[in-house]
């Protein structure tokens, strides 16, 4: 409602949170999920190194093609990996694992690194088109051997950045991310 426009963003969120805190745990449950991250390093089926790829000047978009088209960045198909790795580093232990997946025609069960709950809608394309670098949210993946979440991608993280933007729409409009 308009009459709340005088309150600061922080006050509005606090009010909301405080009211919910009066014994209703639902919001807290959702927030817990929101703040959750994974410790994916040990769990990945293949020890994929972003560093090894990035240092050869392969751009992020080469594999994560979705970022310039829509909401989902996407992960490359096994076929795409094999496009290079049927020739490159074929003797590597990890690449042999990849080759096995390809030969069995099975998908690689990657463990998700960055995840948002089902009620959060994020669009990669909007951010990439506005000139936001991948590293702003994903950290310097170039230096990571195995990708890990470097920031807690919670609502505060989003809002802190959007508070600095000239256009404050995404700050005040829940529907930008929740629908």
């Amino acid at each position: 409602m308009r009459r709340l426009a005088g309150l600061s963003l922080r006050q509005r969120l606090m009010l909301g949170g405080a009211a919910a805190g009066f014994g209703i745990v639902l919001v807290a449950i959702l927030l817990l999920v929101l703040t959750s991250t994974t410790d994916a390093a040990d769990e990945q089926p293949i020890k994929f190194s972003h560093q090894a790829h990035a240092k050869n000047d392969i751009s992020c978009q080469f594999c994560h093609v979705g970022v310039t088209h829509g909401p989902v960045a996407g992960i490359p198909s096994v076929e795409k990996c094999m496009g290079c790795h049927s020739h490159i580093a074929t003797a590597n232990e990890e690449i042999e694992k990849l080759t096995q997946y390809w030969e069995k025609q099975e998908p690689i069960p990657w463990v998700r690194v960055n995840r948002q709950p089902s009620y959060v809608y994020f669009n990669h394309y909007s951010h990439v088109a506005a000139g936001v670098g991948c590293g702003s949210c994903h950290g310097d993946v170039k230096t990571m051997t195995i990708a890990e979440p470097v920031v807690e991608m919670n609502m505060g993280f989003c809002l802190d950045c959007h508070a600095e933007q000239e256009n404050k729409d995404a700050l005040y409009d829940c529907a930008v991310c929740h629908r």
Partner: peptide, 13 residues
């Protein structure tokens, strides 16, 4: 169950 989600790519997209 909430946190550990595997993400399976296409074999051939």
């Amino acid at each position: 169950g909430e946190r550990w989600v595997t993400l399976e790519p296409y074999v051939t997209a």
